[in-house]
Design a protein around this nucleic acid. Structure first.
Lengths: 339, 339
DNA sequence: AACGGCATAGACAACGTTGTCGTATCGTGG
DNA sequence: CCACGATACGACAACGTTGTCTATGCCGTT
């Protein structure tokens, strides 16, 4: 156990603890010689400041909470964590994760208590938690800083990071159109999920712009899980006039569509084009590879965490809202082709 | 922000702060009447102890670190987190995650610094981190408690939680045998991954027990990612005498095998049986559904975290090693059938 | 009535930092 | 060479808990 404290460093360096503190925190008012001597000693003895003492005194915890709810596979959450962790490590912060859907523990008392006890410096909220009014209210009541990733509404309420889901879905739909597809099916995400809604809207407007009426049965509900993609795909392919291309609102459901096609003996992309959204690990390993929209999830989380650490998200300045937009791109693989 | 402290409670209750502290920590030496009065006040004012002060004073951080490395998809890691979080919430702990493979940050300075600064009460280690001697050395040098999930060796080194991978793979292989399969292919996991090794051994011994020689080309390397399953499956199916069943060491690779089969126009399970290991989200949504071994990942992580909190894993008692075994079961779906 | 022992409670000093304020020391312009 | 403002540093009190030690009250025993 690291038993050496700031006092040990101060003694050995022949300075006061305050001077050591100044060196650690890169404050001014320390001569170059003294600074070097203290830094060497810190390095030599392997000293690390005690986080508890530091946060007790400074009222900062150096803890960032990442609040999420499991929707679909773990890929999204995993990428968020990777990105947030990168930003935390860089700034000397730690990352605590708070999940919001463990039965009975989640909302209300569970999260609230965790937040109160946690003393976070700030929170990164991901969809769909970032749009849950109840949860936002709890967080704001605690006076906590937060930055949202890909929120769906209340854009003035906090800083956020986003990518243009709607435009991406629009581009993807246009691409299918240009390949000659006219009957294009769409598999929707969960009803309360903002990204899912925007993707659907992108699809709708692209079709509308081209004067193509979207029959209601072309849009099939889903929940981002592969099974729902299988079922939805099955429904679409069972139509009297089945679509020649299916756009699933995420990759997992697109995988389900591939299964549905193979179940019916249809070959992709010859008989049916399939495209997804996310560019998760499945997209490149399926056969054929999945054409999909690459979403910079880790980068968005990283940017959000950075903003948080830089002090955006502070409740006192929340009106000074900031937004950062990141780019998507379409990754073409073998699952789509011209008609 | 919760600005009320133990002093406020003490004043209003007309007792000393120490008495309030005793109530909070459920210590003895407080009369029932006093206890009730203090508890009511705590409830009424919504008081929560300040974690920093508490840990500064008591030398416990109420923080559990979950150390992992991303291998394959996020499913394993996600399940681990869910389980560990359940145990943490129950005991009033928080969960900090530390990833070990972010390029350049990971091992060595990155992790070490994070551990030193983190002041964790204990660590939960998952494969393959739990078998990395370098990392174990760092952790032990810090004098930190830890419990391992599914370690591969050094069983006396710390408490651990495990399931019998070898027996499970053995059972699965026997099951394929009983269905009439003789040429059974196996797709291996990463070389340094203990679970992968044990699964392979289970497969080998089951075959050996039945007097079936395993040709070297029946075992194809993989890395737990779906793409490697596709490639390995392709290799196996391209053999002059291809296997009639393929056992992949995890579900992701089994998905790749399904793709490889559909690429060659083979139908599963008619032309080829495919089985996996993990029972992740893909297993039930592929078509056909994947026969696989259900692994209680979340439960193992939960048990490990519990043990940690209960004080196993303390370096002073590490020799008093404890192990908890959890059960697997085979989930039969449509991807395997008799020959 | 004096005593010992137990249950209950309080005083006070840690814990290891940061914040505030005060004080030497030094260079500089008049 | 003096006054003066920087610059560099230190003393000391927070921060909100827990741990240790001590004090009080009350009971049953002798």
């Amino acid at each position: 156990m690291s038993d050496i404290t700031i006092v040990d460093i101060a003694k050995q360096a022949g300075v006061s603890i305050k001077t050591v503190s100044r060196v650690i925190n890169r404050e001014e008012g320390v001569g170059p010689a003294t600074r070097a001597r203290v830094e060497d000693l810190i390095e030599k003895l392997g000293y690390r400041p005690n986080v508890s003492a530091r946060s007790l005194s400074s009222r900062r915890s150096y803890l960032i909470g990442v609040v999420f709810m499991r929707v679909g596979a773990y890929h999204y959450v995993g990428e968020v964590q990777v990105g947030a962790m990168r930003a935390c490590r860089r700034a000397g912060y730690h990352m605590v994760i708070e999940q919001v859907d463990d039965p009975g523990q989640a909302r209300g008392p569970g999260l609230e208590q965790a937040l109160k006890a946690g003393r976070f410096d700030g929170l990164v909220l991901t969809p769909p938690v970032c749009d849950d009014p109840e949860i936002l209210a709890i967080i704001e009541a605690q006076g906590l800083s937060y930055v949202r990733v890909a929120p769906d509404r209340d854009f003035g309420r906090s800083p956020y990071v986003f990518m243009d889901d709607q435009q991406a879905a629009h581009d993807m739909t246009a691409r299918l159109w240009d390949l000659g597809h006219r009957r294009i099916g769409f598999i929707d995400g969960p009803a309360d999920h903002g990204s899912a809604r925007r993707r659907r809207e992108g699809y709708m407007t692209a079709m509308a712009e081209r004067g193509q009426r979207v029959k209601p049965e072309w849009i099939s509900p889903g929940d981002f899980m592969p099974l729902s993609g299988l079922e939805a795909g099955d429904r679409l392919l069972g139509l009297p006039e089945p679509p020649t291309a299916i756009f699933a609102a995420n990759d997992s459901m697109a995988m389900g569509v591939l299964s549905a096609a193979s179940k019916r003996g249809l070959s992709v992309p010859t008989d049916l084009s399939v495209v997804g959204f996310d560019d998760g690990p499945l997209a490149e390993s399926s056969w054929p590879g999945l054409t999909t929209v690459h979403q910079p999830i880790a980068e968005m989380a990283e940017a959000a965490t950075e903003m948080l650490i830089e002090g955006f998200g502070d409740p006192r300045f929340r009106s000074r809202t900031a937004a950062r937009q990141l780019d998507y791109h379409i990754v073409e693989r073998g699952s789509s082709t011209s008609r």
